[in-house]
């Protein structure tokens, strides 16, 4: 392999590493919630999701029906945990990603 070929391989490798999400980076989940009609009622979702271990912060868009959950570094949120928290708050989880 020529020196130019090695340099190209190293560059490609570095680019791939830079583009991927490192394992230690904070994970962000988007939960689509049905039944979100008013801001006052949505406070229950904040209470329930913020009580889940590892949750750092969340944002609620009533108009879009989306709750964005940001986890602490290294923490993850399972679909079941999210669904249970949303249900206990009095709503229905439509999608989770």
């Amino acid at each position: 392999m020529t020196a130019a070929g090695k340099a190209l391989r190293i560059l490609v490798l570095l680019a791939l590493v830079a583009a991927s999400t490192p394992a230690w980076a904070a994970k962000v989940y988007k939960i689509r919630v049905d039944g979100l009609a008013c801001p006052f009622c949505a406070y229950g979702i904040e209470k329930k999701l913020m009580a889940v271990p590892g949750v750092k912060s969340l944002g609620i868009s009533i108009n879009k029906g989306i709750v964005t959950v940001t986890m602490r570094k290294g923490a993850t949120l399972s679909r079941d945990t999210a669904s249970r928290a949303v249900k206990n708050a009095g709503f229905t989880m439509r999608s989770f990603r």
């Binding site: 008013c38 801001p39 006052f40 949505a42 609620i60 868009s61 009533i62 108009n63």
Partner: peptide
């Protein structure tokens, strides 16, 4: 009726 569709964290009136 809610005249203004306010977001979470904003004052809301019905």
């Amino acid at each position: 009726v809610r005249p203004i569709l306010s977001e979470y964290g904003e004052p809301d009136t019905v």
